[in-house]
Structures are given as structure tokens and as C-alpha cells.
């Protein structure tokens, strides 16, 4: 058995050595905000936070997160109380098809936790592991910078 803290709750996963984190989160935990796109660790659509680090759940085994904190998009905001990053993505046109959005927001959250006032270039670098084919990235970068300001004024 693998013990982990998933979105703030202690949970137990089966001890299957081949069980991939992304599939387990989607199929067994119903956390379908996580998307499997390239499924090879290239595109970042499956990004989750593992002890605050952005990681691709498509190529992590569940046993690799034993004892660690795993966060998915579902742990952030709710329709009545969006997380500042979600609000900024919503307001800045930072998504079109939306398939990359959960992973993109989590990658941005990881950045803002360690660097609350990033420069534009730092945002670009932090998001370079997350592909978006729709927007051309500019509004995503703007949204992250706006969220950083909003979070500095009133932390979520």
C-alpha cells in the first residue's frame, strides 16, 4: 500500500508497482481535471504538485509519491471562490480549449509559492514545460503576473 496526502486528505493507494499516478488519480479518485495529453512527460497537461514541486503525473508511479503531499486542480478554488490564479486565467483570456489549463495553473502556483513576485521572463521559464497550442502564451503569462499581484494584496 502507498500512503499519501492527496488534496489535504490522507489516502491509501494499492501497492501495484506499475500503477501510474495520473491514471490512478483520474480513474480511481475521479480527479479528471488532470489531463493526459502527450502521456510522455513533454506537454505538462498532467501537472500535479508533489510537495510543492510541479511534476508530470503521467510518468510517475504511485509508489514514487509515498508519504508526500499531492495537489491537483480540484484542491484550488470553487465556483464561488476561485483561487486568484483561476480568477486571473478566467479574466485574461488565458485559455481557449482549456485542456492545458489545470496543469498550467498548477505549474504557475508552484512558481508563485517560491517566487511570489516573478518577472515576465521567470514566468516564461517556469511555464516552459507546459504546452499550449491555442493561446500563444501571452495571456497566460499576463494572467500569472496579475495573479501574483492579487495574491500579494490578499493571499488566498
Amino acid at each position: 500500500m502507498t500512503q499519501l496526502v492527496l488534496n489535504g486528505r490522507a489516502v491509501t493507494a494499492p501497492a501495484d508497482p506499475q500503477l501510474l499516478l495520473g491514471l490512478w488519480l483520474r480513474d480511481s479518485q475521479g480527479l479528471t481535471g488532470l489531463k493526459l495529453a502527450c502521456d510522455q512527460g513533454v506537454c505538462g497537461a498532467c501537472t500535479v504538485l508533489v510537495n510543492d514541486q510541479p511534476m508530470g503525473a503521467c510518468h510517475l508511479f504511485v509508489w514514487q509519491v509515498e508519504g508526500q503531499r499531492v495537489e491537483t486542480i480540484e484542491s484550488l478554488g470553487s465556483p464561488t471562490r476561485l483561487h486568484p490564479l483561476q480568477q486571473a486565467f478566467h479574466d485574461h483570456g488565458a485559455l481557449q480549449c482549456g485542456f492545458c489549463t489545470p496543469g498550467m495553473i498548477l505549474a504557475a502556483l508552484a512558481l508563485l509559492r517560491v517566487n511570489p513576485h516573478p518577472t515576465r521572463e521567470e514566468v516564461q521559464a517556469a511555464l516552459s514545460g507546459n504546452l499550449c497550442r491555442c493561446t500563444g502564451y501571452r495571456p497566460i503569462i499576463d494572467a500569472v503576473l496579475a495573479a501574483a499581484e492579487a495574491m500579494a494584496e490578499s493571499p488566498p
Partner: peptide, 19 residues
């Protein structure tokens, strides 16, 4: 205006055919 459907997408609640 923000895209209709943006709310579901930032929450990770938008279903796609793969879901």
C-alpha cells in the same frame, strides 16, 4: 468578455470526450 465556459475550465471541471 471572458469566454463562456472559462469557469469550468479553470476549475478542471470541463468534461472532454476522453473523460
Amino acid at each position: 468578455v471572458a469566454q463562456v465556459g472559462a469557469m469550468a475550465r479553470v476549475l478542471g471541471e470541463q468534461p472532454y470526450p476522453c473523460d
